Amino acid sequence: MRFLATDEQEAFAEAVDELVQDHGGAAVAQQWASGDHTAGLALWHSFGELGLAGLRVAEAEGGLGGSAADLAIVFERLGYHAAPGPYLESVALLPRLVDDEARSALIGDGAIATASVEGLAPAALDPDIATHRFAIGDGWIAPAVEFERIESLAPVRRLGRLVPGARTDLDVDQLAAALDEAALASAAMLLGAGERLLAEAVGYAKIREQFGKPIGEYQSLKHQLADVRVALSFARPLIWSAATTFDSSTRARDVSAAKIAAGDAARLAARTSLQVHGAIGYTAEHQLGLWVTLVPALASVWGTAAYHRARVARSILSA
């Protein structure tokens, strides 16, 4: 079992990084959070040209035919940059659930799809800029006829409650696989966000001085940062394992274990990074807030920690 990215996967990840940087880096997410979608929509269009929308769509249907591991690679980078927009819904969730005509439209140029899922993600992300909106429930999917804006913990995640229209039945196994794919993508995003928070903390610890020397030289701070490094490094192989065994009978257990570990590690990274930055980290102007607020928001959707721990427990007890 290979737990390392291939050359092709690393190249795709680098392409994601370059596109985000070319469009402004963290400023894209900051502008999106303030209500200015210009840079974010330009980035979405560029990702569309890269083929990201069809990452998990078969080549015969016009997609890239990527694996679950490809998905994890890409969404880690999206989390690292706090890339705004319903990428998870468009790329990981919906392609499995919509019909052929809708799938072709979703991977077309300019399409932006979002969705809500009863119990797991009750509010849809960015319904105001989406061209396609879907409400999903227990065994059904429906196009949304309207939405109501609601407040979000993370400014970069602009949410709305969808009102479903006519419902279409879904295959139970197909729905379960799509929801697990969304949970895997969210775990990868949490890992990427955690890595960015650690990088920001380490970088700041090298330049912020106290009592005549950088705070990063103090042993207690080194221990805190090392704890974050360990937590993230332990979460990564769980995500890789879930991705490489996604089509096996252990999918649900493996995805849940990955989501739990990534959520715990990212929360630790957020708390530690905020402490390292001190008062400056609490200001709305500092970009650290993008990830500090994104992490708890992502950890609570696509299955809370309690939900995923229960799934792991059921798997163990039924073995």
Rank of each mutant, 00 (worst) to 15 (best):
1 M>Q: 12
3 F>V: 15
8 E>N: 04
10 E>P: 07
13 A>P: 10
19 L>I: 03
24 G>Q: 07
26 A>D: 07
32 W>P: 11
38 T>F: 11
40 G>P: 07
42 A>L: 14
45 H>F: 04
50 L>Q: 01
53 A>Q: 11
54 G>C: 08
61 E>V: 08
65 G>T: 03
68 A>W: 09
71 L>Y: 01
73 I>F: 00
75 F>K: 06
81 H>W: 00
81 H>S: 01
83 A>T: 12
86 P>F: 01
88 L>Q: 02
89 E>D: 12
89 E>I: 09
89 E>P: 02
94 L>H: 06
98 V>N: 00
100 D>A: 14
101 E>W: 02
101 E>C: 13
104 S>I: 01
106 L>F: 06
110 G>I: 15
110 G>Y: 12
115 A>M: 07
117 V>Y: 03
125 L>H: 13
125 L>Q: 09
126 D>Y: 09
127 P>V: 04
128 D>P: 03
128 D>L: 02
132 H>S: 11
135 A>I: 08
137 G>N: 06
139 G>E: 04
144 A>W: 10
147 F>Y: 14
152 S>V: 08
157 R>T: 08
163 V>L: 09
166 A>I: 14
169 D>V: 13
171 D>I: 03
176 A>N: 10
183 A>W: 02
183 A>H: 02
186 S>Y: 09
189 M>L: 05
192 G>P: 00
199 A>S: 13
199 A>P: 05
207 I>F: 03
210 Q>K: 12
215 I>Y: 03
216 G>V: 14
229 R>A: 04
230 V>W: 07
231 A>N: 06
232 L>G: 04
236 R>H: 15
244 T>Y: 12
246 F>W: 04
246 F>H: 11
249 S>D: 11
259 K>Y: 07
261 A>L: 05
267 R>E: 14
267 R>Q: 14
269 A>G: 06
269 A>Y: 02
276 V>T: 14
278 G>I: 02
278 G>H: 08
282 Y>G: 15
287 Q>N: 10
293 T>F: 02
303 G>R: 00
310 A>D: 15
313 A>R: 08
319 A>I: 08
